[in-house]
């Protein structure tokens, strides 16, 4: 079994596999999002307390979950990259970072536009919001470090170290901000008092969550293919690819 997996751990053999998988995830994401948005925006009834503003939940919550989950997956690939010195795992971590940053941004942005009508403010120094903002800084730090290093092998390892150090810090940051917030008792806002959701709302939220998963996987696979092509430049298997042979430069 282990040997089996190491076979796919070579960029050259993973490239076509990723190419075959990506369209399925993309199509699933599109279909799920279409149904999810239809149910969430049209079919689901108006919430008794929050009115129609609650409909932001259908993108806010999946994006927030995804933003944290992608960081965990990045940390997993980084640990593999450092432990086993596998190039593909570092490429996977690299491919995930921009999408993770994007999800974090979406979570923050939609949170602001949900917060304004429900708690009367675009921004509060709530533990979750503050940690999410720091998470965005961590993603941007990893991307900036990657861009700052010319040698890709060094960039792989440096970004892996940074990602793992950040992963240790994320829970500490969350609890520190939470504690800081309770000490100051500044924001009386409680996000935990979520309104009881009707089954139809849960359905829409579930569909949108699955769509976000599909999107993130598809985008990461497509990006890892681009990264493989960048990194393997000059390798003979690349020039035999139909998409490269077909090109007229």
């Amino acid at each position: 079994m282990a040997a089996h997996w190491f076979l796919y751990a070579s960029p050259a053999s993973f490239y076509p596999i990723a190419g075959r998988m990506a369209p399925w995830f993309a199509a699933a994401a599109a279909a799920l999002a279409l149904v999810g948005l239809w149910i969430g925006l049209v079919v689901a009834p108006t919430d008794a307390q929050q009115g129609d503003a609650y409909r932001i939940i259908f993108i806010h919550v999946p994006a927030a979950w995804m933003s944290m989950f992608i960081y965990l997956v990045m940390a997993f690939w980084s640990a593999l990259a450092l432990g086993y010195n596998t190039r593909l795992s570092a490429m996977m971590a690299q491919a995930l970072a921009p999408t993770g940053a994007l999800m974090t941004f979406i979570a923050l942005w939609t949170g602001a536009f949900w917060g304004r009508p429900t708690w009367g403010t675009y921004w509060a120094w709530d533990a979750r919001m503050t940690s999410e903002l720091i998470l965005l800084f961590l993603y941007l730090g990893v991307i900036a470090l990657r861009n700052g290093i010319d040698d890709p092998r060094r960039a792989d390892k440096a970004c892996s170290v940074l990602t793992l150090v950040g992963a240790v810090n994320v829970p500490i940051i969350y609890f520190s901000v939470k504690w800081w917030n309770t000490l100051h008792q500044g924001s009386t806002i409680s996000m935990t008092a979520a309104p009881k959701m009707a089954a139809i709302m849960v359905t829409a939220l579930g569909l949108m969550t699955l769509a976000t998963w599909g999107y993130a996987i598809a985008v990461a696979l497509i990006r890892v293919r681009a990264i493989i092509v960048e990194r393997e430049r000059g390798a003979s298997w690349l020039s035999h690819l139909p998409e490269v042979r077909r090109l007229v430069v």
Partner: peptide, 12 residues
């Protein structure tokens, strides 16, 4: 950029 976010808990 890398270090300041990691300093947040110490600051708090």
């Amino acid at each position: 950029l890398l270090v300041l976010p990691l300093y947040v808990p110490i600051l708090i």
